[in-house]
Amino acid sequence: MAIMSFPHRHLLGIEALRQEEITTLLDLADSYAALNRQPDKHADALAGLTQINMFFENSTRTQASFEIAGKRLGADVMNMAMQASSVKKGETLIDTALTLNAMHPDLLVVRHPHSGAVNLLAEKVNCAVLNAGDGRHEHPTQALLDALTIRRAKGRLHRLSIAICGDIAHSRVARSNIMLLGKMENRLRLIGPPTLLPSGIAEFGVEVFEDMAEGLRDVDVVMMLRLQKERMDGGFIPSEREYYHRYGLDAAKLSHAKPDAIVMHPGPMNRGVEIDGTLADDINRSVIQDQVEMGVAVRMAAMDLLARNLKLTRGTAA
């Protein structure tokens, strides 16, 4: 049994969500965003529940965001740095999951370097699992926080022209955003060098550009992606400086977008590689800090909804 407006046990990806479920979650996140600006930020939606953050891949920002979200809702939050633990001793992902499961957590927040690893783990545990990023597959809370940021900045989340730029092939953020923004009926443009565009892109229902000026023409939203350091030298692009010249977002390239277009970046930024530092700090154009703020609100909403379903399921079982 689950609440009708969000009938999910886990949040593994945007793929499984419907348009109205995304709206439900964003509406709730809006109210948490308001709460987060109050002096007293506490709510009790997760009171008595245990939240474990399992990060098999380094992350400061996402982990902190999930931790603050859980604590503001009254959960007991524990962080496990998985590289340092039994994973090094050769324990398999499934054994780790079963061990943790025996400790009766209620919410498991998982990041893993391999696509599908969070799905695999979710099959083996009794609690709600939130995907905090798996390989190149999905990063649903990032897409949801981006959506909330856009909705608040633009007043709507449909019929916008949105460009996603950079390393789309290796980006889980891009995949989740393509799915979410597509479900909400926006026009999507993907911009990047062919080596950083995923295979089969022609079947995604998006427009593809290799030239920034052309791709950014009259868009409402510019989403930049982080270029991983290990992809910079020769393998996928010739050099950092050529990439910045052709695909780095600066005022000149942004001038092709609508005058009120907003600039987004999931962080952490490589200033001078994919985005000009001054532009990133321009409070009239950049909503990068709002994204971080909305991240906490969206994660509070996601965990709140999953916890409600968890309580309903357990109530039925008992």
Binding site: E15, S115, G116, D134, G135, R136, H137, E138, A169, R172, R175, P198, S199, G200, I201, E203, F204
Partner: peptide
């Protein structure tokens, strides 16, 4: 195998 499915699943593909 590379293609839309590989990209959706975020799995490395081969042509």
């Amino acid at each position: 195998t590379s293609g839309k499915f590989a990209s959706l699943r975020g799995l490395p593909g081969v042509s």
